[in-house]
Simulated scan of single mutants.
Amino acid sequence: MLEVMIDNKNGNIWDIADLVSNVTWKTSRIGKAGSLDFTFVKGAIYQNKDFRIENGDIVRVRKDGMNVFYGYVFKIDSGQDEDVKVTAYDQLRYLLFNDTLIFSAKTASEIVQMIARKYNLKTGQLDESNYVIPTMAEDNTKLMDMICKALDLTLVSTGRIYVLFDDFGQMALRDVTTMLLDFSLGEGGLMTDYSFSRSIDNETYNRIELVRAGKEPEDRVRGLEDPGNIAKWGRLQLHQKVDDGLNEAQINERLSNLLKLKNREQKTLSIEEIGNVRVRAGCLAPVFIESLGLSQFMLVEECVHKFEGDDHTMSLEMKVF
């Protein structure tokens, strides 16, 4: 059973589950707020004459007693017909404005905490990311992009993936290994369709170059490459600037980690399944598809849940390691 509540922030809380249709909940692992889109019929027979919905109202959604979405109305569309279309976003929407901030010797977890504290955002579980970023000077940059940069630096330095998301009204930062689903997707679950893609067109590199701008010319560039894959695919080069304060050992470690992450085909798997609200972007899931020879853990990159009457389906974009 789907529960949809509207809080007008004036003491009125409305249960509109019987009025809504075509509910869509979307989450993304990187750089986006969670969103909820739904339609309701204005002036419906069961609608209270005092019911109103305004931008800024709180939207709460639960499914079979499980928390799904907590956010705020950002868009209301209506016309001559009786349908009203509403778009709401979770708290991460308030990270999509620009600021100028400087961070020194902070972990990604600390950066999330500092931003949340400065902008009065609610936080929940924040896993400690441990890697200390020497400096991050961000000028006129989206807050979300600052956090994503900190998480990227943590990934290339430690190999560990963290995901930022809104956990029913509280901003959470989790190591993806703690978000392991205890059930299978694909043929081990309730899959109805799939598609599989392999590409070297985006985010595949077989030579990595790191540049330290403040050094002497002979010390500026350090490189690492895979000659075998260069012969196979041609030269695909990633050229990045790094902090001048990194020593040789740190530079070599970053080169090794980047080549390990980037020197491979980028594989994506799209799955259509019967819905389960425990699945959201950032989860790790065991996936089994015999015809592809796949039996491994994969990361949910994008997740779209659709609720139409008693039907609940989900569309997943999976990252294949």
Rank of each mutant, 00 (worst) to 15 (best):
163 V>Q: 05
118 K>M: 13
317 E>F: 00
189 G>H: 07
164 L>K: 05
52 R>D: 15
140 N>G: 11
89 Y>D: 04
283 C>E: 09
319 K>Q: 14
110 E>F: 05
298 M>H: 08
142 K>T: 08
197 S>E: 11
194 Y>S: 09
85 K>S: 12
154 T>Q: 04
277 V>S: 10
265 E>T: 00
133 I>C: 05
249 A>S: 12
285 A>R: 03
144 M>K: 02
321 F>L: 13
191 M>R: 08
310 D>A: 14
265 E>C: 00
235 R>A: 13
311 D>G: 11
162 Y>R: 10
77 D>Y: 05
124 G>D: 08
149 K>T: 12
284 L>W: 00
124 G>W: 03
1 M>A: 14
88 A>R: 00
245 G>L: 12
227 P>F: 08
139 D>C: 09
212 R>A: 14
243 D>W: 07
130 N>C: 12
61 V>N: 00
155 L>F: 12
149 K>G: 02
74 F>I: 03
312 H>P: 08
76 I>F: 06
50 D>V: 13
258 L>F: 05
82 E>P: 00
175 D>F: 10
103 F>V: 03
149 K>F: 03
135 T>N: 11
205 Y>C: 07
4 V>H: 04
20 V>L: 06
31 G>Y: 01
292 L>K: 04
220 R>P: 02
47 Q>C: 06
257 N>T: 09
305 H>N: 08
183 F>H: 10
99 D>W: 03
51 F>D: 04
146 M>W: 03
204 T>A: 15
58 I>R: 02
70 Y>T: 03
131 Y>V: 12
159 G>H: 05
69 F>Y: 05
37 D>S: 06
124 G>V: 03
293 G>R: 01
50 D>Q: 14
152 D>A: 07
237 Q>F: 07
202 N>L: 06
299 L>I: 09
178 T>K: 13
157 S>C: 07
200 I>R: 07
108 A>N: 02
170 Q>K: 15
234 G>H: 12
310 D>M: 11
274 I>V: 15
212 R>N: 13
94 Y>F: 15
182 D>K: 11
201 D>G: 13
282 G>H: 06
154 T>P: 02
229 N>Y: 06
252 N>C: 08
298 M>D: 09
281 A>D: 07
